[in-house]
Simulated assay, not measured.
Amino acid sequence: MRSDNSKIKEIFKDIVFTEDEIEIITSVFHKLNVKKGTILLNAGDSVNEQYYILEGCLRSYYINSEGKEFTVQFGIKDWWMSDYTAFFTGSKATMTIEVIQDAILYKITEKNKEYLYAKIPKIEHFFRVKLEKAFAAFQKRVLSDISKSAKERYLLFINTYPNIHKSVKNYHIASYLGITTESLSRIRKELLKD
């Protein structure tokens, strides 16, 4: 229990909680040790959970009607992940979430999150700020996708994910960047010459 308490404090950095509040929080967050290759969410599923990544790496991806796979997001330490459109609207998932490096996660349901908002209002503020930052990051990514070259997008990717870009499969990175694996190889070779 005490180790979970320290993890809760790590999840909610900069917030001071009473011992009673920590007990409430630990009662609704559930720790998961998840192996590489595990699918946490499939497209078409109902989405009722959000995941905090304590360790490891996840990715969310979308498969279009032609069967082409697009990596939408990588999730690394201290990030939150879900299919947020489905999570917030009650629609079915359009994305799949896969564990691509063994992970330690903390999950919370929408119902339990609402419970925390009512019991500990400073948590609602915490999540609002996280959501604002996530929205800004997604908008920045969209603008990058429409305005930057593939090479510039790759450089931005390795700056955003400095600890995982070497251990993630090339086709995952290529699908995230919206390019072929051949183009990714060519970009990496060009960068080695620079």
Score class of each variant (00 low, 15 high):
Ser144Gly: 06
Lys189Ala: 11
Lys166Thr: 13
His172Lys: 13
Lys111Val: 05
Ile97Val: 15
Cys57Ser: 13
Phe70Ala: 03
Leu32Lys: 11
Lys130Trp: 08
Lys111Ala: 07
Glu23Asp: 11
Ala103His: 02
Leu177Tyr: 03
Ser65Glu: 15
Tyr106Ala: 10
Ile8His: 08
Asp14Lys: 15
Gln50Trp: 08
His30Ile: 08
Phe88Glu: 12
Leu177Lys: 00
Ser65Cys: 09
Glu152Met: 10
Gly56His: 01
Leu192Arg: 10
Ile104Phe: 07
Ile173Asn: 00
Lys36Val: 13
Leu105Ala: 14
Ile97Asp: 01
Asp20Cys: 03
Tyr106Thr: 13
Ile104Tyr: 00
Leu32Ser: 09
Glu110Met: 11
His165Pro: 01
Leu40Cys: 08
Lys7Met: 07
His165Met: 02
Ile179Asn: 06
Ile63Asn: 06
Asn5Thr: 10
Phe12Ser: 00
Ser185Ala: 14
Leu155Ser: 02
Arg186Met: 03
Tyr115Cys: 03
Lys7Pro: 04
Met81Glu: 12
Phe135Cys: 07
Phe29Pro: 00
Lys166Val: 07
Gln73Asn: 12
Arg188Ala: 06
Tyr171Trp: 06
Leu105Lys: 03
Gly44Tyr: 09
Ser149Thr: 15
Ile39Glu: 05
Glu69Asn: 14
Ile104Gln: 07
Ala150Cys: 09
Lys166Ser: 11
Val16Asn: 15
Lys13Val: 09
Cys57Leu: 14
Lys151Ile: 12
Met1Lys: 04
Lys35Thr: 07
Lys133Pro: 04
Ser60Gly: 09
Ala103Phe: 09
Ile39Cys: 10
Lys107Met: 04
Thr26Arg: 05
Ile53Tyr: 15
Lys122Cys: 11
Asp4His: 10
Thr26Glu: 04
Ile158Glu: 03
Asp145Ala: 10
Tyr51His: 14
Thr180Glu: 05
Leu191Met: 08
Phe88Met: 09
Thr180Phe: 00
Asp83His: 02
Lys193Gln: 14
Leu58Phe: 12
Lys113Glu: 12
Thr38Ile: 06
Ala93His: 00
Thr18Lys: 11
Ser144Asn: 12
His172Glu: 08
Val99His: 00
Glu152Arg: 05
